[in-house]
Amino acid sequence: MRAFDRFDELDQQSLPQGTQVNSLLAIATVLAMLGLGVVIRNNTLAATTVYEDRINGVTAQLPANWLIDAEPEDQTYIFRATDTGGIPFKTYIQVSIVTVGADANPRNVIDALNVLGPARLSIYHVVSIEETRLGDDVATRITYFYVDTEENPFLETEPTVVEGVDLVVIRRNQALIFTFRDAAATFEENEFYFRNFLETVEY
């Protein structure tokens, strides 16, 4: 008996058939899995939860696992959803309501926001104001930057340049302000949260 044997010395007839099919199928499977992976990723990132504010008549799909604040101490908004994991800035979507006159249009509200901005936000700088639509409604959208600074003197937090968008629509004698704010560096990457929100918001 031989001390050792090699499989390549075996009868070639015993080699597996269809390796080519297997290889092609492997590539196809991997591509399919990767495609599915991208879908899973996107769906996970875009996963939402329904939030309904019956008092103010606003319903929207908010990103899942974002922290929802519907009882602000200072009453400056009706609810806000915040991404608690965001670094360096906690991205948030916020809805606020201001009472307006019968003849008010979104631009009036934007102008008011624009006046208040420098008082509320550090180094507030508006980059664009444009007319747009939200569903069937006329809306005005303002895009701005400001610097977010930590006011607790014991924390060494670097200031963050924040990009913000306020979108205003008029509902009877109320102006609804939909706000999205994120670190300028990641704004484009995360803006889909706001787009998804605007696509689903009912008011």
């Binding site: 922290l67 929802i68 924390l155 937090t157």
Partner: peptide
Amino acid sequence: WRVSQVRAMAQTDREGFFQ
């Protein structure tokens, strides 16, 4: 994930310190 359930929340600074 409701703020109404939260007693307090804070964010760490660049040294990882929070208050």
